[in-house]
Design a protein around this nucleic acid. Structure first.
Length: 428
DNA sequence: TCTGGGGTCCTAGGACCC
DNA sequence: TCTGGGGTCCTAGGACCC
């Protein structure tokens, strides 16, 4: 196992946007401040973001929306469908502001980034971070919290402390090891970054209940039981940085595009349309990162929550004769895959595709019998992508994606794409 | 009626090779 | 009568994350 050898100790800040999706909605709807606000997952299925007021009402992350309809009404909760055009754009703005404070920004998710301040004076870090919090708020409208520590896992812990205890300026600095035991002893082991449900149960069975107890456990013993990931986590808790600190996000190795349907789908052609449109979305992502794919997985499934007479959940993997980034070719394979999977008489709930074995378009092995995408194909896809980027998604699409698309997901309460569509600019 | 979508890393075991 | 040992690659599945 390779952990950081000690030159100067690492200083890692985790910047996390508070209730990110809710905060994005509030930026353009100031009347929502201090009101309970919730944002739903795709298809308006589950609650995926909650304002503090909603958390106080006892609504858990991931609660199915239909379970809380009554409460939504009685408590006057403002509910929104997910608006990824807005959240993605706001995320990019926040990251851009953060980049002004250090060149080493490592985005981790849509609402989080690790920033590297190794070599800075500890005495100046809190103040510097507080300045970041203020600047992000002023320039984007998004509130953030920051945790600073010698490792990523401890930076996560610090961030949680900053949020929970509402520390001044939204910042918690845990660079002094003397502060760690008291805080880790208060923290249930299951709330650590990297410890999920299963591991929590297994750790508790070993009488390890708090983060401090895990920190004090024997790393090699726990490695034998849980694997190297757990060993690294223990070192991270001890302030020894073991996790990668890559500044560059490497290209994805696989891409998934899938959706639940707004209502059950029974027809083969409708399933093929839906899958074709998922392929088109995956294709855009594929080309954006300059990759080609060598294998395609298609899957369709019935409603897993329902007692169906015939629960059906099947996938087929298609190895492509030559690597490609051409949506047209991929759709051709995908609709064949759907046909092979399709059983008449079932009510399908969800379908999707995965692109696997991605490789850089520049470095593919050439095959005399199965040449890859030719120049015409590349230029065609380039035109499609550019046009859709300029005129809006779906402006130019493949006929196989269908026109009416009655299977589209529900999105009844979506706010406007305030920042990415001219027609939807906010009026002042 | 209604229950999201998109990722990563690690490990174990089988196939195959020398 | 006898039937090794070690390496690599691939895949499936399990764990985790937001």
């Amino acid at each position: 196992m390779s952990c950081a050898s000690s030159e100067s100790p690492r200083r890692i800040a985790l910047v996390d946007c508070n209730n990110f999706y809710v905060s994005c909605e509030r930026v353009f709807a100031p009347q929502l401040a201090h009101r309970p606000v919730a944002v739903l997952s795709n298809n308006d299925g589950c609650v995926v973001a909650r304002s503090e007021e909603v958390k106080a009402l006892g609504i858990a992350m991931g609660t199915p929306f239909h379970e809380i309809r009554a409460l939504v009404k009685s408590a006057g909760i403002a509910v929104y469908s997910s608006n990824y055009a807005l959240y993605g754009d706001m995320s990019a703005r926040v990251m851009q502001v953060l980049a002004q404070f250090t060149p080493r920004v490592e985005p981790y998710s849509i609402d989080e980034a690790f920033l590297h301040f190794t070599g800075w004076e500890d005495a100046r870090l809190t103040e510097h971070a507080q300045h970041m919090v203020k600047t992000v708020r002023r320039w984007t409208g998004i509130p953030v919290s920051i945790g600073i520590a010698p490792s990523k896992v401890l930076a996560k812990v610090a961030n949680r402390v900053a949020k929970q205890q509402r520390l001044p300026g939204g910042v918690c600095q845990l660079t002094d090891p003397a502060l760690h035991p008291a805080i880790l002893a208060q923290m249930p082991v299951g709330e650590l970054w990297g410890i999920g449900k299963r591991w929590t149960q297994r750790l508790q069975a070993l009488d390890i209940h708090t983060a401090q107890q895990l920190r004090d456990s024997d790393p090699s013993q726990l490695r034998a039981r849980f694997g190297v990931v757990m060993q690294r986590l223990i070192y991270e808790l001890r302030g020894v940085s073991c996790l990668d600190t890559e500044a560059l996000t490497p290209p994805k190795q696989q891409l998934i595009a899938s959706r639940s349907f707004g209502r059950p789908v029974t027809e083969l052609t409708a399933l093929q349309e839906a899958v074709a449109s998922h392929v088109a979305r995956a294709g855009v992502k594929l080309r954006r990162q300059g990759s080609v794919t060598q294998a395609l997985v298609v899957f369709i499934q019935t409603n897993r929550f329902k007692q169906e007479a015939f629960p059906y959940h099947q996938a087929v993997t298609l190895r492509l004769p030559a690597p490609t980034a051409d949506t047209g070719k991929l759709i051709g394979y995908a609709v064949m895959g759907v046909k092979a999977l399709y059983r008449a008489g079932l009510r399908y709930k969800k379908a999707g595709v995965m692109l696997l074995n991605l490789a850089p378009a520049q470095q593919i092995q050439l095959d005399l019998l199965h040449p890859g995408d030719d120049e015409r194909s590349r230029r065609r896809m380039q035109v499609v992508d550019q046009l859709n980027a300029k005129m809006g998604n779906g402006t130019l699409r493949f006929a196989r994606e269908g026109w009416q698309q009655p299977w589209q997901m529900r999105q009844a309460k979506r706010s406007p794409a305030y920042t990415t569509k001219w027609e939807e600019l906010p009026r002042v």
